[in-house]
Amino acid sequence: MTRTPPALELRAVTAGYDRSAPVVRDTSLTVDEGEAVGLLGPSGCGKSTLAKVAALLHRPYGGTVHLGGVQARGWRHRAPRAQRTAVGVVFQQPRLAADPRLTLAALIAEPLRATGRKAEALARTGELAGSVGLGTDLLGRRPHEVSDGQLQRACLARALALRPRVLVCDEMTAMLDASTTAALVTVVEEYRTSTGAALLAVGHDRTLLERWCDRTEEMPCTAAGGPPLRSRAPDPVSVPGFGPEAPSDH
């Protein structure tokens, strides 16, 4: 029986920022066509690195990435444009993910312009903005003139502009309130229903990912992996029932 190749497949990926202590070790992950997979794990365990590898934005030390059954041939600019743009990415912090000099309209249309589709950029910017709930009155603003939630909506519209087959959401809603979170998830799900795209949602909020995704995977957290990031290792001190001293003590 032949089955369609998975939309995204990571095989034995080892990656990080220091070859002697990679944060991701020998990790494999498969996301089928139309499937939504949640990747859970504490911060600092390499989830974001793995997300960047999946989007062909970070070159791993070992392992391969397959998109629709085709092995990725390179990373960043070395990856063929068709492969790069087959994966849409949304990052955790919209402030960092948006070029501060562009208006929201330019931000959303950037992928269309970058791939030489100027006419389409003009025609579809409004529609893309509308699909994420952004009114046209906001499109002339720059990132510092809108809220985090509005900016993240624009970043999601940008990621959907080229109609990717796979969407990678790296902690997309970690900075957002409950209503905006639900709204963005709704947009992603509408897009997936209409296009059959696959989703890799990375995050640490189990309730959210279990509700959102078809299945969730636990990111193995290798304790040996590298120097501590800000909050990587589990808290070494456990204080079961501590109470502060009474104020009268000092």
């Binding site: 989007a55 994966v87 960092l96 070029d99 000099r101």
Partner: peptide, 26 residues
């Protein structure tokens, strides 16, 4: 190393476009 450059790369921008449109103005 900023995310917005990653986003541009992922959106299909060429090296030249990333340099001229995102890095140089910065």
């Amino acid at each position: 190393s900023r995310d917005f450059v990653d986003a541009a790369v992922s959106g299909g921008a060429s090296r030249w476009r990333v340099g001229v449109r995102h890095l140089l103005p910065g």
